[in-house]
Amino acid sequence: MAISLVAYIREFARWEWARKFLAARTAPLVIPPYFRNYPELTGKTCTHHLFCMMACPAPGAIDVIRTPEGWQPRIHIGHCIRCGLCVEACPNGVLSSGRILESMFRDNTRLSFSFKIDVDLDKCMGCGNCAVACPVNKLIDAQMSHGGRASTDDLLLKLSDGKCRVLHVEKCTGCKTCEHHCPNEAISVARLLEAVHAPEEVP
């Protein structure tokens, strides 16, 4: 046991090694522009659009929770894969990671969400659950959320000729409330995430 310990020291305590260890000089470590760390809060106000959650490819990695100060994203480190999509997706710059925000600003790029709502007219019973539950509709028309009567055509969804119709898909925020509450699985929301150059005007 003792002999082997000596042999061990002898093997590793060679001068050549010690010199290199103490005298070596390498270039300082630079974080590359593409490096993405866990997202951090920038302190900007979260508007609860949930784009971060929608963009996140890792299940359970990000939540938007209500705190006494208002809505805030919360990152679950163990689940986060540091892809940075949430940082890019956020329309308000609430999150930051590495130099993503910096390079987005420099290159004038961003991630843009759009949504496509499909209604299967064969399955739709016209129950109106989707249109009444829809949080966008709720903001536009209180009568709609209080019993399903459309008092305007500015709505995202409404019932017409016995079926749910999508009137203004551009107002969709992709929350999928309609999809979750459709009893017949007649309505579905597809989220389209694309990178665009220069922020486009919302039509």
Binding site: A142, Q143, H146, G147, R149, S151
Partner: peptide
């Protein structure tokens, strides 16, 4: 009328 529209179940 606003309250009527929102809380009654008849028009």
């Amino acid at each position: 009328t606003r309250k009527f529209d929102q809380y009654y179940t008849v028009r």
